[in-house]
Design a protein around this nucleic acid. Structure first.
Length: 108
DNA sequence: TTGCTGACTTGGC
DNA sequence: AGCCAAGCCAGCA
């Protein structure tokens, strides 16, 4: 009955679903926003065993690189992000500093 | 039921 | 500069 009723996975699930087009988020951010900044791994687990309908391709690691174990390979994720309007500085690296998105920035 | 792995992050050497 | 180890929580076997 309270906001704490939301589970970790549910919280991450909602956040990923709210990522706008042309923006990306890091696992650490999703984890921190979900309540545990060190639970970045859990976000990945949720991504694999969570809702496949969410834009997990917009979820990247803090290194500015793509996620690991992505279905099809990082090249697929890169192609998806490029289709969203994201530009890559390297073969598999993106400008995380410019493409990173925060839920509080959604109105800023 | 318990145990282990896992789509990561950060700090220390 | 790059590499190693520890920590977190949830889902599957």
């Amino acid at each position: 009955m309270t906001e704490v009723d939301i589970n970790f996975s549910k919280r991450v699930n909602e956040l990923v679903a709210q990522i706008p087009n042309g923006r990306v988020m890091t696992y650490g951010q999703l984890a921190a926003l979900s309540g545990s900044p060190l639970a970045a791994r859990i976000v990945g687990g949720i991504a694999h065993y969570g809702s496949p309908d969410l834009p997990w391709q917009r979820v990247v690691n803090k290194s500015g690189g793509l996620a690991s174990g992505f279905p099809g390979g990082p090249s697929i994720q890169k192609a998806m992000l490029e289709a969203e309007g994201i530009t890559f500085d390297r073969q598999d690296k993106l400008d995380i500093d410019s493409l990173i998105w925060w839920p509080e920035e959604s109105g800023k």
